[in-house]
Structures are given as structure tokens and as C-alpha cells.
Write a protein that binds this DNA or RNA. Sequence first.
DNA 1: TAGATTGTTAATCGATTAACAATC
DNA 2: TAGATTGTTAATCGATTAACAATC
Lengths: 209, 209
Amino acid sequence: MSDRVVGRLSVYRRLLTELLGRGVANVYSHELADLAGCTAAQVRRDLMAVGSSGTPTRGYAVAGLYERITRYLDSPGGQSVALVGVGNLGRAILAFFSGRRPKLKIVAGFDSDPEKVGRTFSGCRCFSMAEMTSVVREARIDVGIITAPADCAQEVAGALVGAGVKGILNFAPVTIHVAEDVYVEPVDMTVSLERVAFYARRGQDEGSG
Amino acid sequence: MSDRVVGRLSVYRRLLTELLGRGVANVYSHELADLAGCTAAQVRRDLMAVGSSGTPTRGYAVAGLYERITRYLDSPGGQSVALVGVGNLGRAILAFFSGRRPKLKIVAGFDSDPEKVGRTFSGCRCFSMAEMTSVVREARIDVGIITAPADCAQEVAGALVGAGVKGILNFAPVTIHVAEDVYVEPVDMTVSLERVAFYARRGQDEGSG
DNA sequence: TAGATTGTTAATCGATTAACAATC
DNA sequence: TAGATTGTTAATCGATTAACAATC
């Protein structure tokens, strides 16, 4: 399954939650496509991939769709996340995810600043860097978020992977290198802003975002 | 020019800055590729696209490369950015970009909270929502960052575009719809984290991040 | 039935990769 | 010269798009 499809499934699910809340029972592929900003053909192909099917007259059942996507995307028992670097951005992300997805919860923060260690931010306890290996192993954390400064991001990534993390969301503006079986998703805000500025100046050309 | 190439150029430039600081005069495509996490063929093709050429013996001149990429990516006179929604995430982003790229500066923040209006965050003045049109026009802002809550992101996008913005970096977890000539880049942290969690659990498969 | 939608198959498109000649 | 790298061309790959039969 390609990363693009996984991303679209996540978007569909968010839209389905909204439709469920409004009591909508069925949706057509072109309706989801309009809401998600993609094509109806993509929606149908993606939904087939997770084992959902619709009918020509009624489209897809919202509740069934939500259930299928969730079964596909989520781990049944939930997954735990660690966040390393409880600075401005780290705390903003802790606040952002607080209570948002109970099955994918940030259960531990880490920081080298003794002032932050022991405190709780948006319901998440901050530990020292030295405690990382034991905390990650005990809580069976397999996802890490790096909001540490660029100059220590690689070291942090190594420590996370060493403790058992298999996926990293990297906000530090550096390319980190890890073992092949670890998935790294870079979220480089500088790169994103420069790209937006480029297309804002040049006209959209063919930018796909 | 595809959005992927623009993103890689931005990464190359960051690496070149570092090399310049270390006094490195030349680089080979495979060296940049290793640092950027892409292939040497991609690097050579991207650099050709911005009009740079290298030699078999010395590779590429770092200074010349930096200059070419900058001339390609940056607006000569610089570009101004507005940020709407000076909450936790907005303030973290203001702090992150503060002084980072002088040619691409966040010159105004906007928030509906009267407590924030008139104050300065990381050197950026916060204005009221009512002032958006006039401030954006007077400062010739053509890039917007949306860090407002999801339920008003679409409205904010409409206001930004109405005031003349041609590119939007959207951190709100909703798909926003704007005119075709406006470039929108979504940065959906929920989608990103769910994708990382998915691959962390399933093994990397073919995730390209 | 009529008609819009679904799901499948083929065609297209773009980007990446591989192969190779040119070059310093 | 020898050899690694550059730049070009062809092949491959994946995803998207288009066309169409099946379906409710």
C-alpha cells in the first residue's frame, strides 16, 4: 500500500466521522472526492483496497466504510507514541494531539532540560533523555516524534530506534538516517513554506498539493 | 517544475549552506544524494533544471550551486508571509521561522482573540481579523500560513485569497478549497502521524518517506 | 425501464531507474 | 592514460486517467 493511499484513507476517515456525526448514512465516491480534494476514481480504488464495496444506487455505507478503514489503519490494541523535544513546537504538538486519537496517544515526552523533566504538558509526562530506553520499552512505544533541535535530531533518532521505535515523524530540519525497516516521515516546515512561496510567485504550474 | 523537485532543491540549499560554512568548495552528486536522502541521478537532473553543471573531476562548485538554486527558488526582493491563528501551534511556528529565512519573513499574525491583538510574538505583531485585508495588501503579502482551528480554516483561506494571497500552507486538519491559481500545501499532522503508525506496525512495505 | 454509479480493463502520463557515451 | 563522474537517452515502473461493461 503506497503512502499516498494511506494518507487519503486517513482523510476519508476524518470526513466519515463528520458525516456520521451529521447522521449521513450513505456517500458516493464523488462526494468523498470533493471533500477530500481528490478524484472519484481514486476514492473507489482506495476503498476497494481496504475491502469496501458500494452499490450503484446508494454508494457506500458510511458506518461500514469507517469501520473498514479503521480496521485497516489502526492497530486493534492501539499504539503508543513518544515525543522528543518538549520545546515550543513539541508542546504545541502535544496540545494538538491531546485527546484527538485515543488509539494513537503520545504517552511520553523527553527533554534534556531539567526544568521540564517531571512536569506534565497537555497530560503528557516529560522524562529525561536518560530514561528514554526504559520508558519506550516498558510502554511498548513504537512511534516517535522528533521535535528536538536539528543538531541532535540524528542522535535522537538513533536512540529511539535503539529502544525499539519503528516509525518516526521528524519535524527537525535535517535528513535523518536509520535502518531500512524503520519508516521516517519528514515534516520540514522550511521546505514546505519555500515551496508555497515558490508557487505563489510563479503561478501554480503543476503543483499537486 | 514539479513540487517534489522544488522540495529537493530546498533541501539541497540547506545542505549547501552547511557545506559553505565548513569551507567545502566542491561536491559530487552522490554526496548530496546521501545527505538529502535521494539518488544521485535525481540530484543531477534537479541541478540541470536550475541551470547548474558540474565536471567529472570536481563535481559541482558549492558556491555556484547555492547561488543558482537561490536565484531559482527565491524572489529577488523577498516575499512576505502572514500567519493566521496565533495559538500554541501558531506561536511555535513564529518562533521556528523567526530569523530563519530573512527573504521569506512572517511579517504579520492575525487572531480573533482581543488578548493577543496588539502584542508581538517572536518579533511578529498580531493584528485583528478585521485588519487582515488592509495589512495583507499594504505589506504585499502573498503567502499565508493557516494555524487557525479547523472549523474556521476555510473562512480564513477565503479571506486570505480575497486579500491577494497566492499560496497557503495549511496546518488545519481540513481540506480547504480555493481558486485554481492559488497553491495550497496541506500539512496534516494527524494524517502524517497515522501514516507513520501504520508503517511502524506493518513494516515499511514501500513507503517512500 | 432509465440513469447514475460502481468496478474493471486499457491507455496515458510522469517520474524514476538503468544504460551508455562524453568528459575532465 | 585510467577512472570516476557527468549528462543524455532509453527502459521501466507506478500511479492516474479514460473508457466501458455491470449493476442496483
